[in-house]
Amino acid sequence: MTETRVLLIEDEPNIIDAIRFILSREGWRVDTSSDGGNALEAVRSRNPDLVILDVMLPNRSGYDILSDMRADEAMRDIPVMMLTARGQQKDKELAERLGVNKFMTKPFSNAEMLANARELVRR
């Protein structure tokens, strides 16, 4: 059984710590990228089983990154879970139009986040 690899794209150090802790307990490997500018390159190079993506990132928004992933042959099928502090309905709709797999607003329940992640990884 290969190791499950998650790429966490998030700029808030405390949140990175929290998510890394939760997912590490599952035995998953968590890589991080905290800059929107080179996040896409990180996805391409690591080819993770799951991308957890923040929306408000330095230099490039999560939506742009998602959009580019879905347009790219190699990254099209990687499941993406979005986390955002902007929990409005239109944000969710936009994410779904762009092809998000799960959309979660901050703050989230750890259990729920983990359940979503598991579901996406299993697929």
Partner: peptide
Amino acid sequence: SHELRTPMTSIRSFSEI
């Protein structure tokens, strides 16, 4: 709301942990 949610997220996550 965004500014409040961000620290809130850490607080909630860590307190749950």
